[in-house]
């Protein structure tokens, strides 16, 4: 267990009492049912991802300022942010590529700062946006690579890993593609393969970097459907996404990054209110709501 520095004790929320090592097991189980429903409980112990007042800067150029964000098991959080809002930097901090100057990132209560990649990969899975590979691995092998954080030693592929990878392909519904080479797949299928790989990694948290940006509408829907199923299995999913409609339609919660700080965070329909959209997109769009559906449309002249 990584030691909790005293610096994080600044914001004394009640939930913090349960955050220490001692209280974790019993209290979190006792309070799980109640705390999961409470929106105001920022530091809940059962959060799959808990980012607290994260700040990052390249030299003197500040990229992220005091960003706090919580994602709970079984929910999809959509991260909306225009280009240059610090979204990728936030992702890179969560994956341990960058080390924030301030703040902490906890995955299921474990501080991931300065974790070696081998350990971090058992906590966070990452689905990259682009996937151009010089070597056309088979889908079967690509999904199996998700097991590598759990493998040890020489000749590390064991029967158990093969079974888990097969299971992941079945759950995502790509078993029929198992013996296809990755470069012969469509963009949507490739994205599903990478999601299956992240599933095989068996982490409590999956990060996706614009999973639908290069896909046609049908494939976009297919990917979101799979993501909902993944979330239902108790995985926390953080998706960065450029389409506010997708976040309204498919995400439980939304977080909006604007110029390096978190503008708003909350249930998707509430977070993407008209004033948030106006701030982020400069009054170019309008939020329409009907009884069954919410939508963000361009402003008519």
């Amino acid at each position: 267990m990584v030691h909790e520095p005293a610096a994080s004790l600044t914001g004394l929320f009640p939930g913090l009492l349960f955050h220490g090592d001692a209280g974790r097991g019993l209290f979190s189980r006792l309070f799980h049912g109640r705390t999961a429903q409470r929106e105001d409980c920022l530091f809940s112990d059962d959060a799959a991802l808990d980012i607290r007042s994260l700040s990052f800067s390249y030299g003197r150029k500040s990229i992220l300022r005091k960003v706090s964000l919580t994602v709970r098991p079984g929910e999809i959080c959509g991260l909306l942010g225009p280009n240059g809002s610090g979204k990728s930097t936030l992702f890179r901090c969560c994956m341990g590529f960058l080390h924030p100057q301030e703040g902490h990132i906890h995955v299921r209560g474990v501080n991931i700062a300065h974790m070696p990649p081998s350990e971090l990969a058992r906590h966070v899975a990452y689905v990259p946006q682009e996937h151009r590979q010089p070597f056309p691995f088979l889908v079967r092998d690509m999904v199996l690579m998700g097991r590598s954080p759990h493998m040890t030693g020489c000749f590390p592929v064991k029967k158990n890993d093969l079974d888990i990878a097969t299971g992941a392909m079945e759950r995502i519904g790509i078993s029929h593609l198992a013996d296809t080479a990755c470069n012969q797949l469509s963009g949507g299928q490739r994205q599903l393969v990478l999601i299956a790989r992240a599933m095989a990694q068996q982490t409590p948290l999956i990060l996706l970097d614009e999973p639908t940006s290069a896909l046609d509408f049908r494939n976009q829907l297919a990917v979101w459907k799979v993501l909902r199923e993944v979330a239902e299995q108790g995985v926390a999913v953080l998706v960065c996404c450029h389409d506010p409609n997708h976040i309204l339609w498919f995400c439980d919660r939304a977080a909006v990054l604007h110029q390096g700080s978190l503008l708003v965070e909350g249930p998707a329909r509430e977070a993407l209110a008209q004033d948030t959209l106006s701030k982020v997109y400069g009054g170019e769009c309008v939020r329409l709501s009907t009884a069954s559906m919410d939508m963000v449309c361009p402003q008519r002249p």
């Binding site: 994956m95 341990g96 590529f97 070696p116 990649p117 081998s118 350990e119 971090l120 990969a121 058992r122 966070v124 899975a125 990452y126 990259p128 690579m145 998700g146 590598s148 954080p149 990694q201």
Partner: peptide, 9 residues
Amino acid sequence: EEARSLGVH
């Protein structure tokens, strides 16, 4: 990046 996210240095 992908190698790192799959747990190798």
